[in-house]
């Protein structure tokens, strides 16, 4: 955790200097490339060490019950697979994003997203993924995957997403 944090510092400082508007888009930790980026799908899924393989074949999402951040047995099973793959592919650093559905106030949902990301992170660590590779963030209800206002969409939006980024050299 500390190692990653330190590695980020010069990167962020550089951004602050180059963009007076704070427009920080599409960078390693930027907004636009983070959640479910279709660009990742273009990558070859047949390469078992690829980001695309992880997203499509292993699965990078875990779903949660309404207002809950505890992991169901199927969530744990999904994270077990993620953990195995992440251990085999140590070249990636990982950001776990927590999300909420739209049925909640904005700041509560942000806090709930943190809870969900933390649950996923703690489970991955318990399965042997190094905590030094992991970082969390929450988007609350700001980035729904599905946009209808019904439980079938909400169920998919209450999620954590395990996001891979290229290792920082």
């Amino acid at each position: 955790m500390r190692l990653i944090h330190l590695a980020f510092v010069p990167f962020l400082a550089l951004v602050a200097c180059t963009d007076p508007e704070g427009g920080f888009n599409g960078g390693l930790l930027g907004d636009s490339s983070s959640w479910d980026d279709p660009a990742a799908n273009a990558e070859d899924q047949s390469d078992p060490t690829s980001q695309a393989f992880f997203e499509k074949k292993i699965g990078n999402r875990v779903l949660f019950e309404i207002n809950k951040y505890t992991l169901s047995s199927s969530a744990k099973a999904g994270l077990d697979e993620q953990a195995r793959w992440l251990i085999d592919n140590p070249q990636y650093v990982i950001i776990i994003e927590g999300h909420a559905d739209e049925q909640g106030t904005r700041e509560y949902n942000l806090a709930l997203g943190f809870r969900r990301a933390q649950s996923a992170q703690e489970y991955l660590v318990s399965r042997g993924v190094s905590g030094l590779r992991l970082k969390t963030r929450s988007y609350g209800k700001e980035r729904p995957l599905e946009i209808c206002s019904a439980e079938r969409c909400y169920a998919k939006n209450r999620r954590s997403v395990t996001l891979l980024t290229a290792g920082l050299s």
């Binding site: 508007e21 704070g22 427009g23 920080f24 888009n25 907004d31 904005r106 700041e107 942000l110 988007y139 609350g140 700001e142």
Partner: peptide, 8 residues
């Protein structure tokens, strides 16, 4: 502000 980053 600009709209490149989510603000809340």
């Amino acid at each position: 502000t600009g709209n490149k980053n989510i603000v809340l």
